[in-house]
Amino acid sequence: MIKKILFFVLFSTTIGFAQYGYRDSNMIALTLGLNQFSLNTSDIQSTPGTGWNVGLAMRGNFYDDWDAIWGLQFSEYNFKVATLNATLRDRETNFKLPCANITFQLSYKFIENHLSVEFGPMVQINGKLAVEKTDENYVIKGDEEYTAKDLTNISNVSFYPLIGITAGVRNVRLNVSYQYGINNMLGKLDGGFSGHASVLSGNVVFLF
Rank of each mutant, 00 (worst) to 15 (best):
M122Q: 12
I15G: 12
G71Q: 07
N35G: 02
A29W: 00
F7K: 13
V169D: 05
E76M: 11
Q105T: 06
K141Y: 08
F104K: 05
F110I: 14
F95L: 06
I69D: 00
G60A: 09
E144Q: 14
G127E: 04
L97C: 09
I28N: 10
N61H: 08
I165G: 03
F79W: 00
G127P: 01
G49Y: 09
G33F: 04
F95W: 02
D135Q: 10
D43P: 01
N94I: 07
A29L: 11
V205K: 01
I154G: 09
A148T: 03
L200S: 03
D190E: 14
R173K: 00
I125P: 03
T134G: 12
G181Y: 00
K80H: 00
G191F: 11
R89S: 13
C99M: 13
I111M: 06
L10F: 04
L162Q: 11
I2D: 15
A57D: 09
H114I: 15
A29D: 12
D150K: 07
I163Y: 10
V157I: 04
I111H: 04
N40K: 00
N53H: 09
A148S: 09
N156Q: 11
V139G: 08
M27H: 06
G192W: 04
S116G: 09
S155L: 12
R91W: 02
S75T: 05
G181A: 01
G71W: 08
H196N: 15
T83Q: 06
S177Y: 00
S42Y: 03
I140G: 01
F62R: 01
Q105S: 10
D90S: 15
S107E: 03
L10V: 14
T83P: 00
A130S: 09
I44C: 10
A86R: 10
N26L: 00
V81N: 01
W52E: 03
T31Q: 15
Q45F: 02
L186T: 03
N153K: 15
N183Y: 02
N171H: 15
F79M: 07
I15Q: 12
N153A: 14
A100G: 05
K80R: 02
H196C: 03
M27N: 11
Y20C: 11
G127L: 07
I5Q: 03
T47C: 06
V54C: 10
L186C: 12
L30K: 14
K141D: 02
S201Q: 12
F7W: 10
N78G: 12
L151S: 09
A167Y: 12
E136Q: 15
Q73G: 08
V176R: 14
Q124V: 13
I165A: 10
Q19N: 10
N183L: 06
M58I: 11
T50A: 13
F17D: 07
N101P: 05
T152C: 13
K149V: 13
T166K: 01
P48T: 14
L56I: 14
F159Y: 04
E76R: 11
F74W: 04
L97N: 15
L189M: 06
D64P: 08
L106H: 07
Y138R: 13
A167W: 04
K149T: 12
F193T: 15
T50S: 14
T50D: 08
T41P: 03
T13E: 02
G55L: 07
I5D: 00
I102L: 05
D190R: 08
E118H: 00
S25L: 03
F11C: 08
T47S: 15
I165S: 07
I44F: 03
S42V: 04
E112M: 05
F110W: 11
K3F: 11
